[in-house]
């Protein structure tokens, strides 16, 4: 019998992810694992985990990884990659980590054109700390620190990372995708694979932003979050390629 589908070798046998039911983190982990297997690089890949729900991947995956303090993953990865250029390095970060406390590290790693990959999960909230307002929380969306909803007069507007980084010359590839249905999952995988292939080819900074949900902190059933995303999140954060030097 031919085996046509299996657990990516990157995911630890018998391990549970620790993510809440319906959360897209699990899907993204599966996609990263499949890509690393397909590219044959899992044995020379190192993950730099951000802080937040993303760190749950540390106990779930099999390959080599280490943590970084809140927001610093891109700084840590810059140095690791520069001193170990033959290895494949990627950061795995959420929106609080990457776009708030770590926005400087993110912008400057991108601006230096560092040759590593960033997998960025944007779920519009601080998941692990319990639903505080994130840099990406939508206008009107409630959070524990914005109990009446995000008010631009008080809190400003959501931060758009791909658009922001696209103002810089150095980044090689920036794409925003989502995992809310099967066609989009396939597109997300394609983007992730391209971001790793770019690194293998030495092309420079590649970031894939994956629009995600948070059933727990949004206070919705998983299926409701998908409807919410279609109606709200994806209107604020349009999917698409924001930079692809291959196409230029």
């Amino acid at each position: 019998m031919e085996k046509i589908y299996t657990r990516p070798s990157y995911i630890r046998e018998g391990a549970t992810s620790g993510f809440c039911p319906g959360c897209m983190h699990s899907t993204v982990h599966k996609l990263v694992g499949e890509v690393l297997d397909e590219l044959g690089i899992v044995n020379k890949t190192v993950t730099v985990w951000g802080v937040g729900c993303c760190i749950l991947g540390a106990g779930y995956t099999t390959h080599d990884s280490f943590g970084s303090p809140h927001g610093r993953a891109c700084a840590v990865a810059s140095a690791y990659k520069r001193t170990n250029p033959d290895e494949i390095v990627y950061t795995y970060q959420g929106d609080g980590d990457l776009a708030s406390i770590g926005i400087a590290e993110t912008i400057y790693a991108a601006n230096r054109g560092e040759n590593f990959t960033v997998i960025f999960i944007n779920n519009s909230t601080y998941g692990m700390t319990g639903g505080q307002m994130a840099p990406t929380t939508l206008v009107g969306q409630k959070a524990t620190t914005a109990p009446f909803g995000r008010d631009p007069k008080q809190h400003g507007y959501p931060v758009h990372v791909c658009e922001l980084l696209a103002t810089l010359k150095a980044p090689y590839y920036l794409e925003r995708v989502t995992c809310l249905d099967a066609p989009n999952v396939l597109k997300a995988k394609k983007a992730i694979k391209k971001a790793f292939q770019n690194q293998i080819d030495g092309k420079g900074f590649s970031l894939v932003e994956i629009m995600s949900n948070c059933p727990t902190n949004w206070g919705m059933a998983p299926l409701e979050t998908l409807e919410f995303m279609k109606e709200n999140t994806l209107k604020e954060f349009p999917l698409g390629v924001y930079r692809d030097k291959d196409a230029e």
Binding site: S68, R72, A75, A79, E105
Partner: peptide
């Protein structure tokens, strides 16, 4: 060797840690 001017003191020390991990 590698010299990097970090975007801040915070970034710089975390870069140093990244190199030390390797």
């Amino acid at each position: 060797g590698v010299f990097l001017q970090g975007e801040s003191e915070v970034a710089s020390i975390n870069m140093v840690n990244g190199a030390a991990f390797g």
